[in-house]
Simulated scan of single mutants.
Amino acid sequence: MRKNIKITAAVAVTAAFALGLSACGTDSDPAAKGETGAGADTSKPLVVGASPTPHADILNFVKKNLAEKAGLKLEVKEFTDYVLPNTATESGQIDANYFQHKPYLDDFNKKNGTHLVPVVDVHLEPLGLFSNKVKDLKDIKPGQTVAVPNDTTNEGRALQLLAANGLITVKDGVGTNAKLSDITDKKGLEFKELEAATVPRALDDVDAAVINGNYAIEAGLQPGKDSLALEKAEGNPYANVLVVKKGNEADPRVQKLEKLLNSDEVKKFIEDTYKGSIIPAFGQPAKS
């Protein structure tokens, strides 16, 4: 029986409270009992937080088809934002998460003082430019509005996608850290910054929008087919990673999941299910 549990912003206060407890090393803190890392109780399920699509879908494929044979009990909890999975992993409410790329993780750690580390790369979600109002890049004209994700790494990534397709010009050298203030020529476009998860819902209110691959798929879009422009996979640093709190990489359950997520079976599942909109990107994460 599937045991996905959706966690929404309503539990943000609980997550923050648990984070405070973990910092104090109370008896409820698994780390205080020696229950993490190599000493983790392998008879307990590994609880992994994930965005619904494709992360939870991939994890549930592993749970249904691969985990039992590997001796892994796996529980999947679905999150619908980009903050709570990390705070819940930091606090020990969950054991791991799978929803983000390493540049976002690095930025999150820096801003929040968390101690989260990537374990293994799994897949790439190419960022795409979509529109319900124009059919081709050349139809995007001065005076029109483009929505972009408002978190640091994805906004920079979105601006570079627009620059690569000639819609804007950005300062040399800013890379994926680009901000709206780094645009040197907007070419008459206006920009609307939105939380990544809400961008697909804004498609009818703007002329075009840069949407993360997972949210595009959840909205019924096919990035490989429906986008006006799509990120290239070659040399792309934005592979989505399995993440744990530092010290828990040695948890035998985490190591089993790491291997399963990079298995031939998962590769085939991703390719057959997402048909190029999600791409396998196996291997070790890049060094910080």
Results as ranks from 00 to 15, higher is better:
D182L: 02
T198E: 12
H115D: 13
V244K: 09
F282W: 05
K232M: 03
K259G: 06
L242N: 04
A88D: 10
I211Q: 00
R2Y: 11
A250Q: 13
A18H: 15
E125H: 03
D81A: 05
A250I: 02
A67C: 05
T114S: 07
V83K: 13
S91A: 14
D151S: 08
D41Y: 10
K110Q: 09
Q255K: 13
I217S: 08
D121P: 02
D121I: 00
E195F: 11
I278P: 02
A9H: 03
A16F: 13
D29E: 08
Q222R: 15
I211K: 00
S91L: 05
V210W: 03
P126W: 00
Q144I: 10
A216W: 05
V148M: 06
F108W: 15
R201N: 11
T169N: 13
A31R: 15
F108C: 10
L194C: 01
A197F: 13
A9L: 05
D107M: 12
E155K: 13
F130I: 11
G283M: 01
V199G: 02
A16C: 07
E218M: 15
L257K: 02
L66E: 11
K256V: 06
V76R: 08
L105F: 11
K6Y: 11
Y238I: 00
L105E: 09
N177V: 01
E231V: 03
K225M: 14
A31K: 15
P237C: 01
V83I: 09
P45N: 01
N154T: 11
K102I: 10
D182G: 05
K141D: 09
N212C: 03
C24M: 15
A12W: 03
A229K: 04
V243M: 07
T87L: 13
H101W: 13
T184W: 12
E249A: 09
G283E: 03
L46P: 01
P285D: 05
V174G: 03
N60G: 00
I140F: 10
Q222T: 15
P118W: 00
V241L: 05
I279Y: 01
D139I: 08
K6E: 10
Q100R: 14
D57V: 07
T198R: 10
D41A: 08
E234V: 02
N109V: 05
F269L: 00
A208T: 06
I270N: 01
E195H: 06
D172K: 09
K141W: 07
N240F: 07
K245N: 12
D272N: 14
G128M: 07
S51R: 14
T26S: 14
A250F: 03
G188M: 10
